[in-house]
Design a binder for these strands. Structure first.
Lengths: 149, 149
DNA sequence: GTCCACCTTCAACCCGACTTGAAGTCAAGT
DNA sequence: ACTTGACTTCAAGTCGGGTTGAAGGTGGAC
């Protein structure tokens, strides 16, 4: 059966991404060069784990470059050293991200209940409503973007 | 004193951003057109509150378009209705963001302690280490990126 | 009266992360 | 044989969020 070898289209379908993304990932090195059968990429199911990891890591703020660094390391000597290193460097960032996100969540909840006739008067738009944030640090210029429907 | 009118340069310095960003923000409508004194923008100190809000909203996952929508609303009738609406639409996104970020934080902490000789064997790279995540929803393709030093 | 820092506009460029399009290859089905 | 559909490569385009550069204006100090 085809239980051992997947085409790029099958992988894409199962991972919920486009084939073009897979090729792009390969081109930037976050996926290894795939085996070919008459020119066409063949994947073993483990690729799905890897794609899942890439997805999560992206969500969590790693760039594709960083993900490549992580995954390159995973195949080499001293892998866990490099992993530890990267993980420790990245932790403060994600913690700051979480605290920013929590602050915004609080703001959104308050905003969801806002009844102010004019938002100029509303506390939500005064400094007090967001002064609890870490404010801008030089060590992190985080950007979160999401395009919900 | 200059306590009431700030130049773009002063605003930029106090907000910790570039003048070019301020002009860009104005051009895309997240900042109102500034008053001019012989061609040069003059700001009252409240602009800093606004810039702070923009910063936070960006960190929290709003695009400049969404921020404009929010702030446009803040000056109009039914402002709080629109604010409530946007806030409620955005809350699930930020909650998902937080849960993803928390999951990655857990992963990073585990990775920071990893002693595995080969990361192929390491649980961190198996499905189990991140299967607790919401996985990809169609309603959100969130991206968080941060460029720490 | 000219030097200087700071301001102006506008177009062009940059970056990451993809997507799209054109042109061609390959294996299976009829 | 030929069509179909999924694949291939490579270059170029897109999008958000800005930055950069050229060419010029303004006003206060010397």
């Amino acid at each position: 059966m085809a239980s051992e070898s997947l085409s790029i289209g099958q992988v894409a379908a199962q991972a919920g991404i486009r084939t073009s993304s897979i090729r792009y990932y390969e081109s930037v090195g976050v996926l290894p060069e795939a085996d070919r059968v008459s020119g066409q990429r063949r994947y073993s199911p483990e690729i799905l784990t890897r794609l899942g990891f890439i997805d999560i890591a992206q969500q969590a703020g790693f760039s594709l470059d960083e993900i490549r660094e992580l995954l390159d390391g995973s195949m080499q000597e001293q892998a866990s050293d490099r992993l530890q290193d990267l993980a420790r460097r990245k932790l403060p960032d994600i913690e700051e991200l979480i605290s920013r996100a929590e602050a915004m969540k609080g703001w959104l909840q308050a905003a969801g209940d806002c009844q102010c006739p004019s938002l100029d008067l509303c506390v939500l738009f005064s400094d007090a409503a967001h002064s609890s944030l870490p404010s801008k640090t030089e060590t992190q210029r985080g950007v979160i973007s999401s395009n919900a429907s």
